[in-house]
Amino acid sequence: MNEFGIFSKEVATSLDIPTSNLRKWSLLLEESGYVFERNEKNQRIYYNRDVNALSQMKIFMEKNRNIEDAVKVVIKRVQDKKSADETLSVIRDSDSEITLEKSDLKEIMQMAIKTALVEQKNEFTSLFKEYQQMAAVAQEEKKLPDSNDNWVARMKLEHKFRGKTKN
């Protein structure tokens, strides 16, 4: 669909409804406060948002809802979307400065500190386990006499240590 808008015949065709139904639905929506843009000849120009609203009406009526209920639901959804868009616009237009309550800031800082402490504890625990394994290997090496005959035994012990650090 084109961003410049389309006329009723194209909308009716895309929704697979007669142009008379489109006119009736459009009038009912307008009576409930919906605004369609019009050209200099006072013809309605339909945009994506309008076609979406009309498509929703069609879906509601296909589900055995009467046209008045369908109009109410569509108007409510359009108003909700408009309200959400306005809120988002205000947020975007406001300063990028964020203000926090003292209690919120305290909670954020406590969470950050707790996370940092947990990370440091995990790192310390990992390093301590590695140190214990190295100390055990060193202790085993002290028990072995330093000769060429025990070279194979030292290699096995070193291999054992490396295997533990990979797990």
Rank of each mutant, 00 (worst) to 15 (best):
E40P: 10
N66Y: 03
D146F: 12
V78E: 05
Y34M: 11
S8H: 04
S89M: 09
D50N: 10
D149V: 08
E40C: 08
G5W: 04
E107M: 00
S8I: 10
F7G: 01
Q132I: 06
T87H: 14
K114F: 03
V90Q: 15
Q56Y: 09
G33H: 02
A112Y: 11
T99E: 05
I6G: 04
T13D: 11
F7Y: 14
N122E: 12
K106S: 04
K142D: 12
K106F: 08
T125K: 14
R162E: 11
F4K: 15
A153V: 05
K156T: 02
A84T: 12
M109G: 09
R77I: 00
A116H: 11
E10I: 00
Q79F: 09
M61R: 14
Y47R: 14
I45Q: 09
L117F: 03
E40M: 05
D146K: 15
S147G: 10
I6Q: 12
K41W: 15
E97W: 00
T87D: 06
E62I: 04
K114W: 01
K81C: 01
D93Y: 05
E140P: 01
Y131G: 02
K166D: 08
Q110G: 07
A53N: 00
F124Q: 10
R154G: 02
L88D: 05
Q43R: 12
R23V: 06
K81E: 13
E62H: 12
L105C: 07
Q43A: 08
F128Q: 15
L22T: 01
T19F: 10
K82E: 11
I59L: 14
I6N: 04
S32N: 15
N150R: 13
A136N: 06
H159F: 05
Y46S: 05
S126A: 15
I91C: 02
M1Q: 12
W151D: 08
E30W: 02
L88P: 00
T115C: 02
W25A: 03
Q110R: 09
I113Y: 05
K129R: 09
L127F: 07
N2A: 06
N64P: 01
K129M: 10
E130F: 02
L28M: 12
Y47A: 05
T165Q: 15
Q79L: 11
R49F: 08
V78C: 06
W151R: 11
E31R: 10
E30D: 08
R154D: 00
E10F: 00
F128R: 13
M1S: 15
M111E: 14
A112T: 09
N2R: 13
D50I: 00
E3M: 06
E107Y: 03
N148H: 08
V51P: 01
T87C: 04
A116W: 14
E158K: 13
L117W: 04
A70N: 11
L27A: 13
V11Q: 03
Q56F: 02
V90K: 14
V11M: 03
W151L: 13
T115D: 08
E123R: 13
K58S: 02
T87G: 02
I67V: 07
D50H: 05
R38D: 10
K114A: 08
E101L: 12
D149G: 09
A112F: 13
K63Y: 07
E62Q: 15
E31C: 07
E68T: 09
R92C: 03
A116F: 10
D146V: 08
A135C: 06
K82N: 09
M155S: 04
K143S: 11
E158C: 09
W25K: 04
K9A: 11
